[in-house]
Design a binder for these strands. Structure first.
Length: 642
RNA sequence: GCUGCCUUAGCUCAAUCGGUAGAGCAACUGACUUGUAAUCAGUAGGUUGGGGGUUCGACUCCCCUGGGCAGCUCCA
């Protein structure tokens, strides 16, 4: 046996490797424990770089086994799954051309493949495709990698008529390593890594098919995108499907209908109609945030919904945001319906001379803005055409900027905690193409944001070119029950608007200075936030938010008077209560009370009426207990105080 | 906006090959007077989203259009 030339280390164990030996072969020399782990490995990471198990070990170093339990392992598993999907599609539709098939960590599937074929793939084709996929898994092809020069790869794919692959290749640098992966008769351009064989992939299910623009550009032709999920075993697929079902149950659009909160109508697509109970929820949220703002020195203002087009030219909205704006004309004058609140706030700022002693001036506004959104993006309360922002504009001196950003961040996180949103993802969005001001100003504004985040030890990711046209932003994203991320809060530093509006304050030196402006919203849109809350709580709102907190159920007609009196007493005590005096049995009323997700039921029969008590049943509990109304009200108060 | 799918009573859904629209729940009326997840009986409810076409005949097939759903793109 020849001398080992390389050495890898796995979980503290050193393994000698002969030249040309693959990772899989090398791992066979490890002890039983590691061999067992290696069997489950999908790929490996050597010195931080991912490799296939089936390639020769290129160098010595530390090896990590990638399994399905990590995000990296999942990505390998799902990426290979996408290839199997492609192979199946090629068998069924020989004319098919492939674009790209990446893994996903969130979205409507674990992976997709974008394809072009004359055959319109519909969900009816899924069983057939899935069958072919499982066949490929059973056939257990070894997946092998080979590397070829770019020119050769382009030639190969040109010959095969794979024009999308050719386009991908042409975009790569000339010295790029071009790797191809083969499994049976199918070979695909891919960076890898991949699982060692198709048999390693377990159960598949195709989840969706839709159009997707080539390279994401609406000007390009549309490809067909086929989404799927895959798991190592059936049980995990079942759990996944169960979770999807659960998520559907808490869809806020469904809950909004069931709980009679809001509705949408063809007469106003994207414009929510709040019913009585939805209004209560909306107003409760609005008052909550008002209160929190007041505690922190904000002053509330209200500005008009329709303002002269001239103002929007001055602010730059007309030039940068026009496609999203609604316009109207009166007496030959052009007006725009406000898509943002900042220009209005600026006029309020300018309504009086400002001194440095007035700063920071924090002007809050629950502003109803209208934005024309493309019809295809509308989505319940998550995406509407008219929404109320818990907006505020903070005018401060450059010296106070850091402090103001920090306290806005802290304010935001405090509010999310109140609702139990823990894992907020923070982004910093930088200068977009369509924007105002110099690079220098953008640099200054962006670093003000990142500095504040760093000072508070908060992690963030960069979203290149996703800022507002007037300034960079911090975005706070929270996730809904399907794992989708929604932007709620935002903090934006703006040096441009003060310039364009010639905002000034008199400094301690008696001279005129320009304030900096911070735009910020915490809930973002009350509409969206309400939708997220409904899904977050699955409609079971905490007491303080519930449109109906208590429902009073009479056992029979004899207690109607008593039930009405108790209901009135609760209302007088400041609670939202309603009586159910319908001519129905108590079982029916309990069932309906439960379905409406009301926090408490008071059950009133002859016994309670005689003893002047109430029998309390809490949401989600089967047991009830009997107390005086006084005691019940005390309990409600203490719950609200929490 | 684009691609695909969907659109039937207030809600959730049926209706064979194109043969003339039906159920449950809700509503209303009556009986029952009820003790912790659906009492019984009855009544009413529809130009099948809208418009046009094919046909002896259209919920069903075709065209235009509104709205919704999923995805793409965009976004709080």
């Amino acid at each position: 046996m020849s001398q080992a030339e390389l050495e890898i280390e796995v979980s503290g164990q050193r393994i000698p490797v002969q030249k040309g030996q693959t990772f899989a072969e090398a791992l066979q020399q490890a002890d039983e424990k590691i061999k067992k782990q290696a069997k489950k490995a999908l790929a490996v990471k050597l010195n931080g770089k991912e490799y296939d198990l089936n390639v020769p070990v290129p160098e010595s170093g530390h090896v990590e086994l990638l399994q399905f339990d990590s995000d990296e392992g999942k990505k390998v598993f799902w990426h290979s799954s996408a290839h199997v999907l492609a192979q199946a599609l090629k068998r069924l539709y020989p004319d098919i051309k492939f674009d790209d098939g990446p893994p996903l960590l969130q979205g409507p599937g674990h992976f997709f493949y974008d394809v072009y074929t004359d055959h319109k793939i519909t969900e009816e084709d899924f069983p057939k495709i899935e069958e072919e996929i499982q066949k490929i898994v059973r056939e257990n092809y070894t997946i092998t990698r080979r590397e070829i020069p770019k020119e050769e790869a382009i030639k190969k794919f040109k010959n095969e008529g794979e024009r999308f692959k050719v386009a991908i290749l042409e975009n790569l640098p000339n010295d790029a390593v071009i790797s191809l992966y083969r499994q049976g008769e199918f070979e695909d351009l891919c960076r890898g890594p991949h699982v060692p064989s198709t048999g390693r992939l377990g159960v598949f299910k195709l989840t969706a098919v839709s159009g997707a623009y080539w390279k994401g550009d609406p000007a390009n032709p549309m490809l067909q995108r086929i989404y799927g999920v895959s798991f190592p075993d059936k049980k995990m697929l079942k759990e996944y499907l169960f979770r999807i079902e659960e998520a559907k149950k808490r869809d806020h659009r469904k809950l909004g209908k069931e709980l009679d909160l809001f509705s949408f109508h063809p007469e106003g697509p994207g414009f929510p109609f709040y019913h009585e109970k939805g209004s209560i929820l909306f107003n409760t949220l609005a008052n909550f945030i008002r209160n929190e703002c007041e505690k922190r020195g904000y002053k509330e203002i209200r500005t008009p919904m329709i303002l002269s087009e001239q103002l929007w030219i001055q602010s730059g909205h007309y030039q940068n945001f026009k496609e999203n704006m609604y316009f109207t004309e009166v007496e030959d004058k052009e007006f725009a319906i406000k898509p943002m609140n900042c220009p209005g706030a600026n006029l309020v700022y300018k309504s009086a001379p400002r001194s440095y002693r007035d700063l920071p001036l924090r002007l809050a506004e629950l502003g109803l803005v209208h934005r024309h959104e493309l019809s295809g993006v509308l989505h319940g309360l998550f995406r509407v055409r008219a929404f109320t922002q818990d907006d505020a504009h903070i005018y401060c001196t450059p010296d106070d900027l850091q402090k103001e950003i920090r306290s806005a961040i802290e304010f935001t996180i405090d509010v999310y905690n109140k609702f139990g949103f823990k894992d907020t993802i923070i982004y910093v969005a930088t200068r977009p193409e369509k924007s105002l001001g110099s690079d220098e100003i953008w640099e200054k504004a962006t670093s003000a944001l990142t500095q504040a985040l760093s000072d508070l030890n908060l992690e963030y990711k960069i979203k290149e070119g996703e800022g507002a046209f007037y300034g960079p932003k911090i975005e706070f994203n929270i996730s809904d029950s399907l794992g989708r991320q929604w932007q709620c809060g935002t903090i934006q530093v703006d040096f441009s608007m003060p310039e364009r509006f010639e905002l000034e304050y008199i400094g301690s030196d008696g001279a005129k200075h320009r304030p900096v402006m911070v735009h910020r919203a915490i809930l973002g849109s009350l509409e969206r936030f309400m939708g997220i809350l409904l899904e977050h709580y699955a409609g079971k709102l905490p007491l303080w938010l519930s449109p109906v907190q208590v429902r009073v159920l009479s056992i029979s007609e004899n207690q109607h008077d008593y039930a009405n009196k108790i209901t009135e007493d609760l209302k007088k005590a400041g609670f939202r209560a309603e009586a159910d005096n319908r001519n129905e049995k108590i079982g029916y009323k309990i069932r309906d009370w439960n379905a409406k997700k009301i926090n408490y039921a008071l059950i009133l029969g002859e016994k309670e009426k005689q003893e002047n008590t109430v029998t309390v049943r809490s949401r989600g509990e089967k047991e009830s207990y009997t107390v005086s109304l006084r005691e019940f009200i005390d309990k409600l108060h203490s719950e609200l105080a929490q």
